[in-house]
Simulated assay, not measured.
Amino acid sequence: MNSVQWSTHTVEICGDVVTKRYLKGDVRALLDREWRALTLLAAHAPGLAPAPIAVDREAVLPTVVMSRVPGVPLRGTPVDAGRMVAMAETLDALYGAVPYDRLAGVPVRPDHRAGLIARLRIRHGQGPRPAAGTAVRAALREGMAWLDRSGHAFAPDVPGTPVFGPGDGNLANYIWDVDDSRIRVVDFEDSGRSDRAFELAEITEHVSGWIDGGLDATAFLACFDLTPEEHTHLRECRRLLALTWLFILSFEDPAHRRNPPGTAERQAGRLRELLG
């Protein structure tokens, strides 16, 4: 048996079975979103995600048991053209998997636009860590100035056609199965109703997508047939997610650093390029 501990949960792998136990946070909400996603996708898009096996909401550590997805995570190596196309095919299938009448009853995913904006305003009031450099501080000011004039506060939270969103852009959650040249998705604890532009921005702006030079955002986004309205919304969502990541990285404790030195400065440059 292999066991790995993450910030909110542990994962135990025993043969073809994975057991996920939730440790902290709103554990039942995390579990409910994960279980809802697994059961919905098993019903409407079997094979895209782990199959649900069992759930125990009343355990000391609430638990979900699911099948093991074969393959290796995309994070950590460049995503070549074949895997990029496979990822886009999987996402197209996943976004459209849940019928509208079922999706209408699914809550909006956590940290969608309204939630992110509220958190950004709180973090802006706290300011970055004292050690944050000049470039980071300048980019944060420019980002907040853009947010203040962008009109986000008055726009609908999920514009356009709703989709089912996995809610986490970490490339570690996209598993490449070399045997059948297919990408599957894991980790749905932040999943819910969303829109395609926001979910694509979640992926392209996640630090895992560029810290290792892994994902060519322009080529990846070209795999999707977006409407003019989605292109406009995508640009704004990418700016919002890039600003969010700059705040996250500017608060990173150097003593417990999860990313290489200089990552916040690189993110400042990414944000300013998107704003430009």
Rank of each mutant, 00 (worst) to 15 (best):
M1C: 11
S3Y: 05
S3H: 09
W6F: 07
S7V: 10
T10A: 10
V11H: 04
D16N: 13
V17M: 05
V17C: 03
V17D: 00
R21V: 02
Y22A: 06
G25M: 09
G25S: 07
V27H: 00
R28I: 05
D32C: 08
W35Y: 12
W35V: 15
T39I: 00
L40C: 03
L40F: 08
L41T: 02
H44S: 01
A45S: 10
A45G: 02
A49K: 03
P50A: 12
P52N: 13
I53F: 04
I53P: 02
V55F: 00
D56Y: 00
D56K: 00
A59E: 01
V60T: 14
V64G: 04
M66E: 15
R68G: 11
V69P: 00
V69Y: 07
P70S: 06
G71R: 02
P73F: 10
T77K: 13
A81Y: 10
G82P: 08
L91C: 12
D92I: 11
G96A: 10
G96Q: 11
A97Q: 07
V98G: 00
P99A: 08
L103N: 12
L103P: 11
G105R: 15
P107N: 07
V108K: 03
R109Y: 03
D111C: 10
H112G: 01
L116V: 15
R123M: 08
Q126M: 09
P128D: 10
P128G: 12
R129H: 14
P130Q: 06
A131F: 10
A131R: 12
G133T: 03
A135N: 01
V136I: 13
A138K: 14
R141N: 08
R141E: 15
A145W: 08
A145R: 11
W146R: 06
L147K: 05
R149M: 08
S150K: 09
H152Y: 07
A153E: 14
F154A: 12
P156G: 00
P156A: 03
P159C: 00
P159I: 01
P162A: 11
P162L: 11
V163W: 11
G165T: 10
N170F: 08
N173Q: 06
N173L: 02
Y174I: 00
V178G: 09
D179P: 00
S181F: 02
V185R: 12
V185I: 15
V186T: 02
V186F: 04
F188N: 02
D190P: 04
G192H: 07
R193V: 05
R193T: 04
R196S: 09
E199D: 15
L200D: 06
A201D: 13
E202D: 13
E202P: 06
I203M: 10
T204G: 01
S208P: 03
G213A: 06
G213N: 06
L215A: 09
L215H: 09
D216W: 10
F220D: 01
A222P: 05
A222Y: 08
F224M: 01
L226A: 05
E229W: 08
T232S: 13
L234M: 01
E236F: 11
R239K: 14
L240R: 02
L241P: 04
I248G: 03
L249E: 05
L249P: 04
F251Q: 14
F251H: 14
F251M: 13
P254E: 12
R257W: 08
N259Y: 15
N259I: 03
N259L: 09
G262M: 09
G262V: 13
A264Y: 09
R270Q: 02
R272C: 15
E273C: 11
L274N: 05
L275Q: 14
